[in-house]
Amino acid sequence: MSEKSYPKKSSAPMTIGMIIVGAALMYGGMYMSSNVTLGFQESLNEQGILLDLGKTIAVIGVFLILFKVLDLFFFNPLHVAIDTRTDDLERTFGEAESLRAEMTQMKSEYEKRLADTEADARAQIQAQIKEAQDLKKSLMADAQRQADDYKQTAIAEIDAEKKKVMTELRVEVTKLSLQATEKILGANVDSDRNRKLIDEFLTSVEAKN
């Protein structure tokens, strides 16, 4: 507000002095108007320009008084009132502005909290889903492993059974071959050498299979 420096009320002596000077000028003007006529006034009057210096001086006096009186009477109060009102309005606006800023801040805080909560919930859901998926994966892996185990066992059993059957089969085939050979030859060929021959043959057959 420093810029709005309205002229401060001039000191009382100044005001009174101006009013006295004004009154004196008015009186002097009145005297001059009726008694004194300067030379150039005459010539001006002849030209049709009616100039009365007494009136001029009196008018100066009147205005000196008027400036002071009107300033004290109206202009200063008006200016003070306008300034006060402006200050008042500015203060009200400032208050409203600060309230608004506060509200904005609260709103942003609330929004932030809301967003935080949402993010939290989402993270939890994600975690749950992940956990469930992990569980599922591990369960599936377990089942797979078990199935594999069963399969392995079964294969091993089958293999063992097969081996056993093959061995029996071989023995049986050897016996049958020997009996057939005995019948054909009529003699006992149950010798180690023959048995060995058949074995070799069987081995070659197995290798082909």
């Binding site: 420096s5 309205y6 009107l70 202009f75 008006l78 200016h79």
Partner: peptide
């Protein structure tokens, strides 16, 4: 008040920031 603002504009616009000093005179 309107006149006050008008005179204020006149003073401040032409004379500058210190023009408010002359307002009572010009208003009168």
């Amino acid at each position: 008040e309107q006149l006050h603002g008008f005179v204020e504009n006149l003073c401040v616009g032409i004379i500058g920031g210190h023009g408010r000093k002359y307002m009572p005179m010009i208003y009168t």
